[in-house]
């Protein structure tokens, strides 16, 4: 950036025109500064109001804490459900997004890749409430036979212990919806990164007699590594904070810790619990929900921060 650009402030005698110039500059500059400070204030406001309204929840117990001895034992299981569902979503979305992005960037002929790329970009704009609707109406019933099968063959894994839910509206279904919601944005970023791999690197691999997959492993994936981690962490951040898809799809049991993701006794997530309980909340219960929101904020902040750290570290290295 240039440092040579400075306003002409050192002039001693100002003609009339220069004076209006100076006033105009000052006003404009102060407006910009004011807007910037307002953003700082707004974020501070978010934190302050959440803390002010959240802290009283520490006194809540029993009925006020949704039947738990303290707010911690209410928020704890929800935190567990949030992390479990997002982790599952990440496990599902990772191979799908990498495969989809590689097909678009390296496998499909451009006649297929271009329209699919556009479609994926547009799907990134589909509102979460529509994903939730589709999750209940279309996905959940179709998940039941898959759950049965998982339970038959992998019932010894605690995740699939069962008994299988009849409605299919379980944490695993919610995780699948979360994964599909994160898929377009994660794919779009990965596609960008894969396509940015220098042609010279790819040609170097091909000229050595590499097959297409060997070329991807030699040139594309190493180049994209830090970007891939950052994209997936961004997707994870989205999944952690997503409310509607879970609130609609999941038929939650309440704040319980359960590893079983295909039965009707489900853990719930923070965001969904807030959405579902808010309408009937009053008094200290509102503070409990706000406190849970604060916990969610801290969690997503940590994940996003990690993603950005990984991304910038990768840039410095490359």
């Amino acid at each position: 950036m240039t440092t040579a650009i400075r306003e002409p402030e050192q002039q001693q005698e100002l003609p009339a025109r220069a004076r209006t110039t100076r006033v105009g500059d000052a006003v404009f500059r102060r407006t910009a500064l004011g807007a910037a400070l307002l953003v700082v204030g707004l974020l501070a406001g978010v934190a302050i109001f959440l803390v002010i309204q959240g802290l009283p929840a520490l006194d809540a117990s029993g009925e006020q804490a949704y039947g738990k001895p303290s707010v911690w034992s209410y928020v704890g299981p929800l935190l567990f459900g949030t992390i479990l569902s997002s982790a599952l979503a990440l496990v599902i979305v990772t191979p799908l997004a990498i495969g989809l992005a590689l097909v678009i960037s390296h496998y499909a002929p451009s006649k297929v890749a271009k329209p699919v790329g556009y479609l994926v970009d547009l799907l990134a704009a589909v509102p979460s409430v529509v994903f939730g609707l589709w999750g209940i109406a279309v996905l959940a019933p179709r998940m039941v036979p898959i759950f049965d099968w998982l339970n038959d063959w992998f019932g010894w894994i605690p995740l699939f212990a069962g008994p299988v839910s009849n409605s299919g509206r379980t944490l695993l279904t919610a995780s699948v919806v979360l994964a599909l919601m994160a898929l377009p944005i994660v794919t779009a970023i990965l596609r960008e990164i894969f396509a940015q791999t220098p042609t010279t690197q790819q040609e170097a691999a091909l000229a050595l007699g590499a097959t297409r997959w060997e070329m991807i492993r030699m040139a594309v994936l190493p180049y994209a590594r830090s970007g891939m981690v950052a994209a997936l962490l961004l997707g994870l951040g989205r999944a952690l904070g997503e409310t509607m898809a879970v609130a609609m799809v999941l038929s939650a049991t309440g704040a319980i810790i359960s590893f079983d993701v295909i039965s009707s006794a489900n853990s719930n997530t923070i965001a969904a619990a807030i959405a579902n309980n808010y309408a009937n909340a009053a008094g200290l219960k509102i503070n409990v929900l706000i406190f849970a929101g604060l916990a969610l904020f801290v969690l997503t902040f940590a994940v996003n921060f990690l993603g950005r750290y990984v991304a910038t570290r990768g840039q410095v290295k490359a």
């Binding site: 406001g45 978010v46 959440l50 951040g237 952690l240 904070g241 997503e242 409310t243 929101g293």
Partner: peptide, 10 residues
């Protein structure tokens, strides 16, 4: 990174 529901709570 603010989850949308947190913006609502704010």
């Amino acid at each position: 990174g603010i989850p949308s529901i947190v913006a609502g709570l704010f």
